[in-house]
């Protein structure tokens, strides 16, 4: 029998879940993945491996996930439709399942224009919803999109993203409903800096009866400074940062803004935790990974039961052995 997702077990047990985002390295050294995973694993139930987020090239999510599972970690593999057609996507899903990946987050992906290779050919053969439904059929019906039978079906805990913070606001909960219908079992949202907007979204989600059908993890993260906040607001697609947040950061001297950004993140976690229907948080601390443990601790979410790092020490040794060149 194929082992199931640990993240799924945490959510089903009713515990407030925590996932963290690992920013893949620009490196061919597995150690650079393990270093980043270590700070997250002890405080998270799952580690997201991003798939060339912001259309910037990094180590692939399949590669990162393969390393993480070998080390005993619990990855959430992000899969974007921007770079691969349906043939490559389905092949990667099978390969990931064989490597022990149990959580998949289906995304459409940012446009290539926002990334470091703006001349690349955008693929977008599927979109997030058709990818979800395709992955669902691979798991439940043991078939490729073409109808061809699989020998052994993968077993995934399927997730999708949601962005309650951008227009059209009245359609966002309905789009979530589509994703649930397509097979999403958990949702990770875009960065939340606007709690009233999230609460409004969640009210509709509950009214539509979706809160019982899907586990919703709210995306959170610390802002390093007022300037960083303004930059993200203007340059990262889909991230909405209200003026009040920027002015709060501006209100403290520059050397204290990191601390203030962290405090704001902790406060947002505590607020969204009280929102009915929210089952966890997804912490994205781009280039501030060292803050994740402090944030989760200060938000009162420890101990985590060590799900993310179960057997990690032993796994790390094994992984290192298997990535070392074999000598005869």
């Amino acid at each position: 029998m194929i082992p199931t997702s640990r993240l799924e077990r945490v959510l089903k047990s009713g515990r407030f879940a925590v996932t963290g985002e690992l920013n893949p390295p620009d490196s061919a050294d597995p150690e650079s993945v393990f270093e980043r995973a270590l700070v997250l694993a002890e405080v998270c139930d799952g580690i997201n491996a991003t798939d060339a987020s912001g259309a910037h090239v990094h180590m692939s999510s399949v590669g990162v996930c393969a390393l993480l599972t070998r080390a005993g970690y619990e990855p959430v593999m992000q899969v974007s439709c921007r770079d691969r057609n349906r043939i490559a996507l389905q092949g990667d899903l099978l390969g990931a399942a064989a490597m022990g990946v149990r959580n998949v987050l289906c995304l459409t992906g940012d446009g290539v224009e926002t990334g470091d290779h703006p001349d690349a050919k955008p693929v977008f053969d599927l979109d997030s919803i058709s990818l979800l439904k395709t992955a669902r059929s691979m798991c439940d019906r043991s078939r490729f999109l073409s109808g061809r039978q699989l020998e052994v079906a993968p077993r995934f805990f399927l997730g999708a993203a949601s962005n309650p913070f951008v227009p059209p606001f009245d359609f966002r909960p309905l789009r979530l409903a589509k994703k649930v219908e397509a097979g999403a079992e958990f949702i990770q949202t875009q960065y939340c800096f606007d709690v009233p907007r999230l609460e409004k979204f969640m009210r509709t989600v509950r009214d539509l009866g979706l809160a019982e059908k899907v586990y919703i993890l709210v995306g959170v993260g610390p802002l390093r400074s007022a300037r960083a906040g303004e930059w993200i607001r203007n340059n990262v697609p889909g991230v909405h940062i209200p003026d009040a947040v920027i002015s709060r950061l501006k209100g403290v001297p520059p050397e204290k803004q990191v601390e203030e950004g962290k405090r704001l993140c902790v406060e947002i976690i505590q607020q969204v935790r009280e929102t009915p229907g929210v089952c966890g948080v997804h912490v994205m601390a781009y280039r501030q990974e060292e803050l994740v443990a402090e944030i989760i601790d200060e938000a009162g979410l420890l101990p985590r039961g060590g799900y993310g790092s179960m057997g990690a020490d032993q796994g790390r040794r094994l992984a290192r052995m298997s990535t070392q060149p074999k000598t005869l």
Binding site: G109, G111, F124, D127, I129, G238
Partner: peptide, 21 residues
């Protein structure tokens, strides 16, 4: 749609309702 989406708007829509790309 620059992403050829078939199932609704992506999460990159700007606050003024314009396209991410």
């Amino acid at each position: 749609c620059p992403k050829n989406m078939r199932n609704g708007p992506c999460g990159g829509v700007r606050q003024n309702g314009n396209c991410e790309i």
